[in-house]
Design a protein around this nucleic acid. Structure first.
Lengths: 258, 258
DNA sequence: CGAGTATGTCTTGTATATCGGACAACACTC
DNA sequence: GAGTGTTGTCCGATATACAAGACATACTCG
């Protein structure tokens, strides 16, 4: 039934550009976060098999993708990593921020992350696991809905309610445990976060972690990225206060505004 | 005249796929190592202007490329960086190697680099500048001909002469100062490097630096990457010997073979 | 075994993405 | 102010990249 609906909704367009298929392919690969069988792609992308096999051939030959493992699995290739380095080189928030995440994590023993806004999602650019046995696994390169995190609120803090509502897609308001956050609440959170140097959310992603985030301001005074700590619920108020101060310092250090 | 020759050699093909144009575009952007004006691309890639403008539009809208600055310049975008992270996540030689480069550079005060083989070039995956005033700038993400470096020789060491000759393109045998290295000499160097844990070259890239490289072996026992130091010519033998030992240790630490 | 499903390759027709060129808006120089 | 070159947009024609489907192989399961 689901398939039928899908077919109907996009029945009018029969042919699609190779480039667009490639963009979707890479987005799917990124979402999956693991090597994907080539045979899986036509179904997942709603594309003809012949097209996908041809595109995968071209992309692997060029080094954008790599075939990995025994069965036909593709993942991102060396070339796309090299191209990505070019981006990092021009963006020193990412370079310096990644180093700061490592330092912060070593210093506090907690899981730490560097996040940036990517369209209507929060992208995790770099992460360093803490020394606790429990491991909260949000993997680098992954993207998560903005309403799930403190970082998301900070990164939208400079926007108007109209802009925020336009940006955030309704399905992203559904939390991992299926609770739905009212758009109005989220918008209010964002506006409330304006100017803050620290923001906490608890129990959004799951019931046993809280998220502590500090903004990194760009030269224009807007939040360019965030640095954050992923903490268990049961830390003492003193521990928490200390971590907050440390995190605020990291955020300020990385900021570009004077 | 050069242009005429080029026109003739590829005159038969009139139309080209968008995907191929995109691949060339990204390769050019990577080579340039800086934001490139859109207007420059049609000439540089031998492509029609209308096509390039359309492709750039699609790629920037998707986040693969970004428009930067006042005039119409493009560079790699956030999305390609995020995709690149996926590659790094699956390749811990790169992750651990980058960290080791930083450590090595802080320890020795010298410029250090992590290199991998990419097709018939050596790609610089990560670099950390030394504390010397002179700065040898090979930028991360850049690719240089294999015959120019010690790393290049190590990375081809497992190959047969036939394979090496097939891989290395003749124009790469020309050094930066226009001297041409005979293919036979380079092949001999590679074969000679087989099994070495350290290799040095001097005066290839320029007259005042030498290159010290140590192989990083993969599980298959082949050289998967190299870690290297870029040094001035005028260091003492004692300094050199000490740096060699340190570098060998780094290479061994990063290697996967038992 | 035979029927059914999944995977990868190859070929053929046509919908359309690419191309060429026209056009406008500049920014030069002489 | 005329002449020349550069940059970006738009549009119609057609070469061809994409889609569909046939074919081959390899499985699973009753």
């Amino acid at each position: 039934m689901t398939e039928l609906v899908m077919m109907q909704s996009k029945a009018e367009v029969s042919r699609e550009r190779g480039i667009d298929r490639v963009l979707k392919l890479m987005a799917y690969l990124n979402e999956s976060g693991r090597p994907v069988r080539v045979a899986e792609l036509p179904k997942a992308l709603g594309a003809p098999r012949s097209t996908i096999y041809e595109l995968v051939r071209v992309l692997t030959e060029s080094g954008i993708l790599e075939l990995s493992g025994d069965d036909n699995k593709v993942s991102f290739g060396k070339l796309i990593y090299l191209y990505g380095i070019n981006y990092m080189r021009e963006n020193d928030v990412i370079r310096r921020g990644s180093a700061e995440v490592d330092a912060l994590s070593r210093l506090t023993g907690e899981t730490s992350e560097l996040c940036v806004l990517n369209r209507n999602r929060q992208a995790i650019v770099h992460t360093h696991p803490g020394s606790r046995p429990m491991r909260i696994s949000s993997q680098a390169g992954g993207q998560i809905p903005l309403p799930w995190t403190a970082s998301g609120r900070l990164m939208l803090a400079h926007m108007t309610p109209i802009e925020i509502e336009a940006l955030v897609s309704p399905e992203d308001l559904t939390l991992p445990d299926k609770r739905v956050m009212p758009m109005a609440d989220f918008v209010a959170d964002c506006i409330g976060a304006r100017g803050s140097t620290i923001l906490a959310t608890s129990g959004l992603i799951n019931s046993f972690t809280q998220c502590l985030a500090s903004p990194i301001f760009g030269v224009d005074g807007r939040v360019q990225a965030t640095i954050c700590l992923v903490l268990p619920m049961d830390i003492t108020n003193e521990q928490r206060a200390e971590l907050q101060q440390t995190l605020i310092a990291s955020g300020r250090k990385l900021s570009m505004d004077v």
